[in-house]
Structure formats: C-alpha cells, structure tokens
C-alpha cells in the first residue's frame, strides 16, 4: 500500500514536509512552495498519480508503528525502525523508474486511452461493435474516438499489434508476459491480481505502480519513434503550469520585464514572480536561465549568507525577513540555482 511506499520518500537525516507528498499525489493546483519541495524531494513526477491518498491517515499509520517522527510543524523523519522497514520495503516491493514522463504527459490519462484503444482495436479486428467498453473520462473517450477515426481500420489493427509486439520484444520475457496480461479485448479479459505471476510480497498497489511505470516506459520510448502509439501519447501532453502562469512565462521569454508583464496583464508583480518561479521549478530551467532572474548583487549577498551545501536547512529569514516579497523570490531562486547546478554537474558526470 501507499503507506509502505511513503517510507521510500523519507530518510533518517532530514525532516520532510508531509503535506507536500499529499498535495502532489492528489494532483490539482500546486503552490510554488509545494512544487519547490516536490522538486527537492524528487516527487514531482508522481503528480496526480495517487489521487485518493489520505496523507493524514498514512502518517498516523506510520507513526503508530513507530516508523516516523512527526512534529507539530508537519515535518516528518524516519526513525531507525523506519529505516529498517524502508530497506525491507525496497527489497520486496516495486519501485518505479520511468515516471518522469508524467510531468509533460498525463500518464494516467494515457494509460486509460491506451487500454481503451487496445480494446477497441481488438474488437475492430473481430468486426464487433457491441461490447462493454472500458470506462474512462468522457473527454478522453471523445478524443480517442476522434483519434480512431483518423486512421483506417486495417492500419489500426496491423500497425497497433505490430507496435505492441515490437515493444514487448524489448522487455524481459517475464515483463512482457505481465504487460500482456493487463491488455484486454475481444474475448480476452485482463488478469486478476491474484492470478498474476508476480512476487508474493507484492500488493495490488505494487501491481498498479508496475503498470504505470511500464506504461511510462512505453511512452518514453515511443516518443522517440514515429508510431501510432506516439500519436496517442501526444493527446495527453500537459503543462503543470496554470494558463495564467503560462502567459506570464511566454511574455518573460519574449524579453518583457516583470514590471511590464504585471502592468500589461493587470496583475501584481509578485504574482508574476510566482509564475516565473513556478515555471523555473516545474520546467527545470537551466542554471543560466535562473541566474538571469537574480540580480548579480543579490547573488553575492546570498552566496555569502548560505554557504551550507544542504539547502534544506537554509533559513530564509536571515536574508529576506522584513524585506518586500521580491527578496523571498530571490532566496527561492537561489535555492533553485543550487539544485540546477547539482543537476547539471550530474549530467556532465553521466
């Protein structure tokens, strides 16, 4: 269950904001603060994946078993018992690896489209129009209907099955077998959890996670090809930024100043700053792009104050207390800058 999975997001040495996980897993609009900590904790790729999560319940459960410490400010940290359980969990449960795609394409939406597309094409192959369709969001259904109409029947059947076979052939036989078991269509049902050839220690949550992760892997690979599956993936493109933030960011990228954007859009300068900050976080802006947002002199001041490598411990009050909101933005951007530098260093190393 997600309670065990939550443990994999925590550690012994650092306190983390519990609500960040709940907010990101549930999806919906994110504050800049949630996005920032989501980036730090590397949980942004899981946006909206576990929307029914009741984080309070999860925390209570973990606390009851003595696996976490939970303070009055909502900060949580693993206990040593928690660390042992975490290690056991990681050995016996599924840990996803491919979810990054979910930040630019809606993974759950694609899963639904993919499964219904597969069912419909299978029924097409048998000339059957009367079947119980897999129920997905209505808008998605309509999108799929439109997508199906764009392709001739024969192309759909032949190419779709060919693409699936090509994909499955790249997997280990065990994974291919499992992947195929989640597909259903004409007179073929998908497998019940109880009949899957999976490790005994897996729960239904592991199975859900495995499916999402494999579909994410399929998406990642398919985007580099020219396939039917890719054209279906493109229907699920999304921006985690709000429409309003997107407009501000577009103007910023056209070299408008923050002040100009605020005036033209008749919104507060601080709102524009938040939009840009949100974009820098969610779109993982480069070091150069972030540096452009912090005046040079402020960068020097910030560099003097925050020498500790671990930005989680930085106290913004030392720099920004009593100043106008713009200074908090500089502080946050400076934190982001350090994260971006780390990321770029890692990329160079890789």
């Amino acid at each position: 269950m997600i309670t065990g999975y939550m443990l994999t997001k925590l550690n012994l040495t650092e306190s983390r904001r519990a609500k960040v996980f709940g907010n990101i897993w549930q999806g919906g609009a994110q504050t800049v603060s949630t996005s920032f900590w989501g980036l730090v904790y590397d949980v942004l790729p899981e946006t909206g994946l576990f929307e029914n999560t009741n984080i309070e319940k999860v925390l209570k459960e973990l606390q009851r078993h003595g696996l976490i410490k939970h303070d009055a400010h909502g900060l949580i940290q693993l206990t040593s018992k928690g660390a042992t359980t975490q290690a056991q969990y990681q050995e016996t449960h599924y840990i996803p690896k491919h979810l990054a795609i979910n930040q630019n394409f809606d993974l759950k939406l694609f899963r639904d489209l993919f499964l219904l597309a597969n069912q419909t094409i299978s029924e097409l192959a048998y000339h059957n129009a009367r079947f119980y369709p897999y129920q997905i969001d209505l808008q998605a259904q309509w999108q799929l209907k439109h997508w199906l109409k764009m392709h001739p029947r024969e192309v759909l059947i032949t190419q779709w099955s060919q693409e699936l076979q090509t994909w499955l052939a790249t997997l280990s036989n065990e994974d291919a077998q499992l992947f195929a078991q989640m597909l259903f269509g004409h007179d073929v049902s998908n497998a019940l959890f109880s009949e899957l050839p999976i490790p005994d220690t897996w729960t239904e949550f592991d199975w859900q996670l495995w499916q999402l992760d494999q579909i994410a892997a399929l998406m990642t690979v398919s985007l580099t090809t020219d396939t039917l599956i890719k054209s279906l993936i493109l229907l699920t493109r999304r921006s985690l930024l709000s429409n309003s933030a997107n407009i501000s960011v577009a103007m910023w990228q056209e070299n408008h100043s923050l002040k100009q954007i605020a005036q033209q859009r008749q919104i507060k300068p601080n709102t524009v700053r938040e939009h840009i900050l949100q974009a820098a976080i969610l779109q993982r802006w480069s070091v150069a792009a972030i540096e452009e947002l912090i005046p040079d002199n402020e960068q020097s001041v910030l560099a003097d104050i925050y020498r500790d490598a671990d930005l989680i411990n930085w106290d913004f009050k030392i720099y920004a207390a009593g100043k106008d909101p713009r200074y908090f933005t500089y502080f946050r951007l400076y934190q982001l800058l350090q994260l971006a530098k780390k990321r770029e260093d890692m990329d160079v190393n890789v």
């Binding site: 094409i121 048998y126 779709w160 269509g185 004409h186 073929v188």
Partner: peptide, 17 residues
C-alpha cells in the same frame, strides 16, 4: 482461461491474427 498463454499468442488472439 487464456490468462497464462505466451504473450505472442495473446497478442495474436487479441487482434484476430
């Protein structure tokens, strides 16, 4: 129950091949 058949066969069955 065709649940455990080989994945190649399952794909063939799904698409009437």
């Amino acid at each position: 129950n065709i649940g455990n058949i080989d994945w190649q066969k399952r794909i063939k069955k799904l698409f009437n091949q």
